[in-house]
Amino acid sequence: METRKYIAISDFCDSHRIDESFVFALSEFEIVQINYSEEQPFFHLDELPKLEKMVRLHHDLNINIDGLEAIHHLLEKIEKLNEELTVLKRKLNRFEGH
């Protein structure tokens, strides 16, 4: 079965029952990347987890777009710091092991 690599914004918004303006606002804040074809705007499948996370935070915690942008940047920062921590821990283990 072939997997769809692109998702139309209208399809996503229909299935999540959200207004398309929400996704466009996320795009303006550069949280998700939207592409445009002649027919309709769409996004790549890789953007889906991020977009769904934003919808959940918006619905579950009533967080507005400004808040989502702040969370997005902080989560990215945490992820980067965690990666650095993993690398440093590994280096320390190597150092302590020899």
């Binding site: 996370k53 959940r56 935070l57 579950d60 915690l61 009533n62 969370i71 989560l75 945490i78 992820e79």
Partner: peptide
């Protein structure tokens, strides 16, 4: 509920 949900929401605590 809101206060605790914001603290422990899985998307904020990957």
């Amino acid at each position: 509920y809101r206060k605790l949900a914001r603290k422990y929401h899985p998307d904020l605590n990957p």
